[in-house]
């Protein structure tokens, strides 16, 4: 029912996003194929738009997968140490291969994100008290520890500033030639779409999955790998975007229930819409300057998250 609305909003926001910026570009200029306008579009505006949409979709789908696998509404790449591990990976690539291409950095960061997420899943299985709240709490503690390890090495190697540029999600640096890695997330999201039911079953536990004839380990490993890969792609191209993977799936499930098959497309769309909206807000609030999007998302996201928490309680 609501799908068309989301799609319409997404298109409207996308158009809006294309025409906001320091350099005035009007719709007519583009139609007239004016050189400067086209250049701005191709070099900066369109890459920015695409990366916003891809990152928004990727992060919210990642959150959805993690929530299914852990059967906990409050788990996401930010609350499970995935993002911080990816960041640690980037730091290591900066230390060990400072001259490496983005692809190599991405691979190293992916490897770290994978390890971090598996560590979290491993710990999750050892927790006896499966309190809905304690699981994300432990995840966040773990994330901040990995963060402190990054801090330690960043300080030793004088990389604090480079690290903090990755800490803050920012789309202003996205231009042609620096975001294309994000396209890798497209097949991943499609893959996730086809495996939604399996993720749900795996989330019910190893015995449950076995009983239904599924290979639990394979499914979990695949889910975690998808999440880790998408997270590291997003971290390396735009930086860290808090809360997105947490709140979007939750908001969607309020309206659509918990049927994953039905949810996955609205979740992806809503993720993109939310990120686009936050980006536009960050660009106009102190125009002509812009605020890092991670701040806007952090503020909006924490308010929404608190709302979700209290709503769940009531």
């Amino acid at each position: 029912m609501k799908k068309p609305y989301l799609l319409v909003i997404l298109i409207l926001l996308s158009l809006l996003s294309l025409f906001i910026g320091v350099r005035k570009v009007s719709f007519l200029d583009v139609l007239k194929l004016e050189n400067a306008a086209i250049r701005t579009m191709v070099l900066s505006r369109i890459p920015r738009l695409i990366s916003l949409i891809l990152a928004g979709m990727g992060m919210s789908i990642s959150g959805l997968i993690m929530q299914q696998l852990s059967q906990n509404k409050f788990v996401s790449p930010t609350t499970a140490g995935t993002i911080d591990s990816a960041q640690l990976g980037i730091l290591f690539s900066l230390i060990i291969f400072p001259a490496a291409s983005p692809l190599v950095k991405m691979l190293l960061s992916f490897f770290f994100a994978l390890t971090g997420s598996f560590l979290f899943m491993f710990i999750l299985r050892k927790i006896k008290l499966k309190n809905t709240v304690i699981i994300p709490l432990i995840g966040i503690m773990m994330a901040s520890i990995i963060g402190s390890i990054s801090n330690f090495f960043a300080y030793r190697y004088n990389l604090v500033q480079s690290l903090s540029s990755w800490m803050q999600g920012n789309f202003s640096m996205v231009i042609k030639g620096r975001y294309e890695l994000l396209y890798i997330s497209v097949p991943l999201v499609i893959l996730a779409y086809f495996y939604t039911n399996q993720f749900t079953i795996a989330g019910m536990g190893e015995d449950f999955a076995f009983n239904l004839g599924l290979n639990y380990k394979t499914i979990v490993n695949m889910g975690i790998s998808i999440v880790a890969l998408i997270s590291s792609l997003v971290v390396i191209t735009v930086g860290r975007i808090p809360f997105l993977g947490l709140i979007i799936p939750n908001l969607i499930s309020i309206y659509y229930g918990d049927n994953l098959r039905k949810n996955i497309i609205p979740t992806a769309l809503a993720g993109a819409v939310f990120l686009l909206f936050s980006d536009i807000l960050s660009r106009i609030i102190i125009y002509p300057y812009e605020i890092p999007i991670s701040l806007t998302v952090g503020i909006l996201g924490s308010i929404i998250f608190l709302y979700l928490l209290f709503r769940r309680k009531a």
Partner: peptide, 15 residues
Amino acid sequence: FLLLVGLVMGTFFQS
């Protein structure tokens, strides 16, 4: 629950 709220408030204040 108190802790989780505190934690999110923390992120909020930080941002």
